[in-house]
Structure formats: structure tokens, C-alpha cells
């Protein structure tokens, strides 16, 4: 997925997320513009796709994955192999109850953090939003530290399989 598609996807998810908070307003769009333009990703491209993406998501209810994949094919022709890094802050969108500002952090084209600054009825809060699960190598996964594990989650084991399970081992630990 291209950087622009990722941004669009992120903005789409934010659009869905804030839809409830923006009840009463006509649109739930958040336009993204890079504050640290460290790459060739264009400002207009990012904001353009994100605006279209989030409005499409909120108005028609289509899934963001479908929307962003179509954006992916659109943007593929112009900047196919951009690997963006940096932090991008969207324009602050105001609505009846307050405002929302979204910040996306990219590392080599991968969304590593999506943050929303929300001001609602005078209260301010900042939230991290996990935009998506991204493909990675096993070495990039957090490894387990068996000594500190309290319990074990795995595909459902039967009563007979329990005795051979790691959970059984933990249950027998004194």
C-alpha cells in the first residue's frame, strides 16, 4: 500500500471514529497536511485523498479498506514507491461540541502511531488510535518473557488437550 493510501486509510478510520462525536454536523472529514515534509509525499495529494476517503466512508458507509484500496490504485501511478517517514498533522476540524486534530506518524511508509487531540465541551484529551494491523516479520513482534506471563491465550483447547497446554503448566506452578 502506498503512503498516500495509508494516510487515506488512516483518515478514513478517523472519520469513522469521530462520526459519533460530530453528530449534528454535516461532515466528518479530517484533512491531513504534513508538518514535517521530510519526503516527496505531496500535501495536496494527502489531503485530497483523505478528504474524499473520509467523506465517502461517513456518507455511504462503505468499508474503509475498500475505499483506501481504490485510492491506492489511483495514487500508484503518481508516486508508487514512496516510503515516507515523519509526523503529519491534519487541519483542526471544529464542530458544534469542540474540535478534533489528528496526527499520523509514519516510519518508512508504515503507520506507527495515530493520535487524536480532542477538545469537547471544554475538556481536552489526547488519544492514541491504533489504525491498523500491519504485516511484519516475526522478529518484529514483541517476544514473550515466560517468567512474567500470568496466563496463556491460544486457540481453544479441549479438556483432554488442556493437560498438555501451557496454561496447564502455569496452573500447576506453585
Amino acid at each position: 500500500m502506498s503512503t498516500k493510501a495509508k494516510l487515506a486509510s488512516a483518515a478514513a478510520s478517523v472519520g469513522v471514529l469521530f462520526l459519533g462525536w460530530q453528530a449534528g454536523t454535516a461532515h466528518g472529514q479530517t484533512a491531513l497536511t504534513p508538518t514535517t515534509p521530510t519526503t516527496t509525499t505531496t500535501t495536496s495529494g494527502a489531503s485530497g485523498t483523505s478528504g474524499g476517503s473520509s467523506s465517502g466512508t461517513s456518507s455511504s458507509g462503505t468499508s474503509s479498506s475498500g475505499t483506501s484500496s481504490s485510492n491506492s490504485s489511483t495514487s500508484g501511478g503518481t508516486s508508487a514507491s514512496t516510503s515516507a517517514s515523519g509526523t503529519y498533522t491534519g487541519t483542526t476540524e471544529t464542530h458544534r461540541y469542540g474540535s478534533v486534530t489528528v496526527t499520523v506518524t509514519l516510519s518508512n511508509g508504515t503507520i506507527t502511531n495515530l493520535n487524536a487531540d480532542v477538545v469537547s465541551d471544554g475538556e481536552h484529551r489526547s488519544e492514541s488510535i491504533n489504525a491498523e494491523a500491519v504485516p511484519m516479520l516475526e522478529s518484529e513482534i514483541k517476544s514473550a518473557n515466560s517468567a512474567g506471563v500470568s496466563t496463556v491465550s491460544g486457540a481453544t483447547y479441549t479438556t483432554t488437550a488442556y493437560l498438555e497446554s501451557l496454561q496447564s503448566a502455569l496452573d500447576q506452578a506453585k
Binding site: 502511531n113 491504533n130 504485516p135 516479520l137 516475526e138 518484529e140 513482534i141 514483541k142 517476544s143
Partner: peptide, 12 residues
């Protein structure tokens, strides 16, 4: 085939 998909809590 060994590929993993992870949100931040599961990333190293």
C-alpha cells in the same frame, strides 16, 4: 508461512 500482522501492543 510465518508472516505476522500486528498492532502496536504486539510490536517489538
Amino acid at each position: 508461512d510465518g508472516r505476522r500482522w500486528a498492532t502496536p501492543a504486539f510490536r517489538a
